[in-house]
Design a protein around this nucleic acid. Structure first.
Lengths: 222, 222
DNA sequence: CATGCATCATACTCACCGGTAGCTATCCTA
DNA sequence: TAGGATAGCTACCGGTGAGTATGATGCATG
């Protein structure tokens, strides 16, 4: 009588968790493709080959579904900050690491939900919760920028506006990136970081990662 | 029988146009505040103190309302490109001019609609139309980037990725900017351009517009 | 004054969708 | 093997919102 029943109970609980996550992922997929408002819970249920009440057995309502997708999307970014904090490197390098994970998160299956979860579609409580998570990320970027300006690894800038620009560019990935693209999320993030770091104004220092067609063509031509 | 009746007719037509534009603006305002799906045509009608059929008297359906808002938002950007083309300056300066207007457009009352009009909410025809307008803008930015790399006014870069980064950062303004902010659209655009142009990596060349607290504090302290 | 067009309201239809009530089947536990 | 928890279903409710049928009003034209 001891061990066996408890083990079964734990198995059930784990099973439930797995199914619940399947529901979340199915929702994320549907939101991705058709948008939140154009996705009905019947749609989500159908892709899982269950009925709508079954979906409600795992989540309490549609709003919570969106919230869970949001959290699943943003959690890797928070993890990236924690990891970067333990890094012994210049602030710019730490920022680089964070932005790399940020870009990958936005390009992930939960990217759309994370980026586009809208205030207007959420109850005040959920909205506040999400806003605080977003603010945490924003403040983290600003902090790294300030530290970078301080330690000399980042060009003097307005941390607030710069953070907006960085986050905006990365968030926007969710609008144009779809699977089966030629680039992975990591590659996109790397390309963006190169753009941000160099800036548009030419630099004297030669090699900066990207080799433009112009020079390549010139080298081939000669 | 000549002149007077025709003039009256023209007056009526102009009157209708004015009212039609009022409907579009009211829609843009509502979409801005509550989002497309959370805005009913009754809402829009109510703010104009008319009934729903009156709205339908001026536009054929809700989708068209969104489309008109989109066009109203994107037109200034197209105009900026036309103006920039006539400019005799380096590609970077022309790009600067375009991005300035771009940012202002996104921060305008139609910015939300322009940026967030979603494929999934539109008929295939409308979606294709909007996509082509967006693509025109994207191609215009890429072209300016290529020209800038060519004429040496822009640091060598991947035009496609750089255009995505620039447009993304500016588009994202629509997500966080609301009226009654401390900055105008033009000021935000200027701040962003400074970020893009300088890049994160420090430069030798001293003055770059922004004077960070760090150095200022240091200078005051000594 | 009669005709016709422009403008707008009342009051409806119809479809969709979030959420629930209540039933059934299965399987673990005692 | 009885009792209860787990997991799922069918069938429904209630609300909402896009779009419309119909008609009233008013104004310019003839």
């Amino acid at each position: 009588m001891r061990g066996s029943p408890w083990r079964a109970s734990r198995e059930r609980a784990r099973d439930r968790q797995v199914k619940r996550e399947a529901v979340i992922r199915a929702a994320a997929h549907a939101f991705n493709r058709k948008g939140y408002h154009n996705t009905s819970l019947d749609d989500i249920a159908a892709t899982l080959k269950v009925s709508k009440p079954t979906v409600y057995y795992y989540v309490s309502n549609k709003e919570q579904l969106l919230f869970e997708c949001f959290v699943a999307g943003i959690e890797p970014i928070r993890a990236a900050f924690r990891k970067a904090r333990r890094l012994k490197a210049s602030a710019r390098e730490r920022l680089q690491a964070v932005l790399g994970h940020y870009g990958q998160a936005v390009a992930s299956e939960f990217g759309w939900c994370m980026v586009r979860a809208e205030d207007q579609d959420l109850s005040p409580a959920m909205s506040a919760h999400i806003k605080s998570l977003k603010s945490e990320i924003d403040q983290g970027i600003r902090r790294l920028l300030r530290e970078g300006v301080q330690d000399g690894s980042i060009h003097p800038c307005d941390p607030k506006m710069t953070a907006f620009a960085l986050a905006g560019a990365l968030n926007w990935i969710a609008h144009w990136y779809r699977e089966n693209q030629s680039m992975t999320g990591a590659q996109i993030a790397a390309a963006f970081i190169t753009v941000f770091e160099n800036g548009l104004i030419p630099r004297e220092s030669a090699e900066t990662g990207h080799r433009p067609e112009g020079r390549l063509a010139a080298r081939i031509a000669r």
